[in-house]
Design a protein around this nucleic acid. Structure first.
Lengths: 349, 349
DNA sequence: CACCACGGGACAGAATCCTAG
DNA sequence: CCTAGGATTCTGTCCCGTGGT
């Protein structure tokens, strides 16, 4: 009704200047924090801004060289809860600094990774956070090498890059240690394949601990899977219908866990009586199940916040942090999905 | 190592032009899809672009060109799975059209809603999608009234605005009808408070069906809660420790459901023997529980895709759609969390 | 003379710096 | 010396004009 075709009715700084009867430069000065503007004029300008509902154009500010006040965040899959929580923490930390964030999904597809990085460049982001998992292909490496703005990675392995990582190795060692103490000897592991840093850490830790305990047999009980429900189901089927099935399984959370549970339910396996289960990654699913699952947990908010801290340290010029690695702790939350198998091994008091 | 202080070494269209030995206008023409450029020149330009790794600045394009190729998406809480899935669908549909998206969280806080809308304006978004829930306060209304770009809402009630909504009323009617058919008479409902559109629809449907069935008593078994785990726990406590507790409860999914389940487990209540439970919103939690929960489900991707369709119809000039309301279906997924109470009422074969 | 490909310049909005009052 | 005006800058797009056929 108001106007048939609204021709980009943007209110610009000039409209404000005209309304307030001053020059555009003066309005700009008021906006940036009135250093050298007479109070009366500043007040007139502010009144005009409020009345016209003027909102400065980020495009223009960015173009002029203020920086875009934006950071990019590239994630394999935001609908995955594990990543979603990290991204959420990053988002909050970024917003707290008055910056905006654009989040991009790659779905683990190289081509989309490349395009995501290019999108970040198109936006003139002031910094980039790369979240999660997989090893970089040459094309991605090449792009990351000449970004022109700071890069921080979360749970990734790129060399010479500021990194915040979760101590997945320690988490897995705690889980296995706990299961061993409970008398389990045949222990399975379901984790993504080795192109993911986290998974490699877990597998290395698993191997070390198994060798140390003389339980090398367990190395045959590792299942590397895609991150989806059916893969979890298949892995569970594969492990638990074997001749000598494990008495305990440590599995990635989220959809993979959901698949494992589907198999467990279908077979009428009762937790923890027939099988002990430890989840990697803690959330409302692990907490809400009956029995609630013992899980390897880490602080998503700390992870995101640390990454943003590191990124802004670099944006704000402290180059010294380049290449620094921050490690976030990982610990076991004991719940009720693990059975004590061998009283003599576990009983101490 | 490469350069002590990198002074925004952005490659611009002019560098490309120089390298290719052409004018900037020609480069621009090649970029926009070679209309009237000689093939040989176009090839030279493309080579220069590739070699210099030129990526056009979105800020500049946005400023001079038609639009920012960006749409905004405002959500109460992305870490909530229900919203996360909608946002994900929106994200994909937007990307499929070559647009970028910026997602903003409000946490249901008015001030953050206002700032989110202003952020969208700063970005010069070409359209805005408002997701979820609560009624608008006057300040928000005022801003939305004079946006200057198309607005589509999902599951919101603003008048005269293109809307895509889920038929929560139908979903609830199906759930209650199913429970009634299974012989349940005392049925509880746990849902957010009435300032959310979805919740009001549910409560209205609940009231209608209860009156129609002469089960007005159930109106006292409605619990309006905050959307978090403790609120779910408290509501369950309140309902199930009463003198005449319901035999069935329909509850919002996600964190609220997790709280309800926590109470259920603590009390040793067995599903569905001691209590029948229907979840609103279906995801891997409802599917993975033992027993898997009967749930009210709707198609998140269709919801997001419809909203984006409607938005682009408006962006691309078809104003006729303004104010149109699209409804997404909502249906009950039968699983194993509902017990048949009364064989005479339920048995038919 | 008309037509087409390309060059060149103005312009979008905000910030900064120089100058004038 | 202090304040405010105004020109200039950033990058990509659009339009007009020119030169060649």
């Amino acid at each position: 009704m108001s106007s048939p075709t609204r021709p980009r009715a943007r209110v610009t700084i000039r409209h404000v200047a005209e309304k307030a009867g001053v020059a555009v430069g003066t309005v700009s000065r008021v906006l940036k924090g009135a250093d050298t503007v007479a109070p009366a004029i500043a007040e007139r300008v502010r009144a005009a801004i409020a009345e016209l509902r003027y909102v400065p154009s980020l495009a223009a500010q960015s173009l002029r060289g203020q920086g875009s006040r934006t950071i990019g965040c590239i994630v394999p899959d935001v609908s995955n809860r594990l990543y979603a929580q990290v991204v959420d923490a990053v988002k909050d930390a970024v917003r707290a600094r008055g910056y905006s964030i654009i989040v991009m999904n790659t779905g683990h597809v190289v081509d989309r990774e490349v395009r995501s990085i290019e999108t970040a460049m198109r936006w003139d982001v002031e910094g980039l956070i790369l979240v999660g998992g997989f090893e970089d292909r040459p094309e991605v490496e090449a792009l990351l090498g000449r970004l022109g703005f700071p890069l921080v990675q979360i749970d990734r392995a790129r060399a010479d890059t500021t990194t915040v990582r979760v101590d997945h190795g320690k988490g897995l060692r705690e889980a296995i240690g706990y299961l061993l103490a409970a008398g389990h000897r045949r222990i399975g592991l379901v984790t993504p394949d080795g192109s993911s840093l986290q998974s490699r850490e877990r597998m290395r830790a698993f191997e070390e601990i198994c060798r140390a305990e003389g339980a090398e047999d367990n190395l045959a009980l590792v299942r590397c899977v895609e991150v989806n429900e059916n893969a979890g189901y298949d892995a569970a089927y594969d492990l638990l219908t074997a001749e000598a099935p494990p008495t305990a399984v440590v599995t990635l959370g989220g959809d993979v866990l959901a698949g494992v549970l589907r198999f467990v339910r279908m077979r009428g396996i009762e937790l923890p009586r027939d099988l002990s289960l430890v989840a990697i990654g803690d959330n409302e699913l692990t907490r809400s199940l009956d029995p609630p699952l013992t899980a390897v947990s880490w602080n998503f908010r700390a992870l995101g916040a640390s990454a943003v801290d590191a990124l802004f340290a670099r944006i704000l010029g402290r180059e010294s942090d380049e290449g620094r690695i921050t490690t976030i702790d990982c610990r076991l939350i004991e719940r009720e999905s693990v059975r004590r198998l061998d009283p003599s091994a576990a009983g101490d008091g």
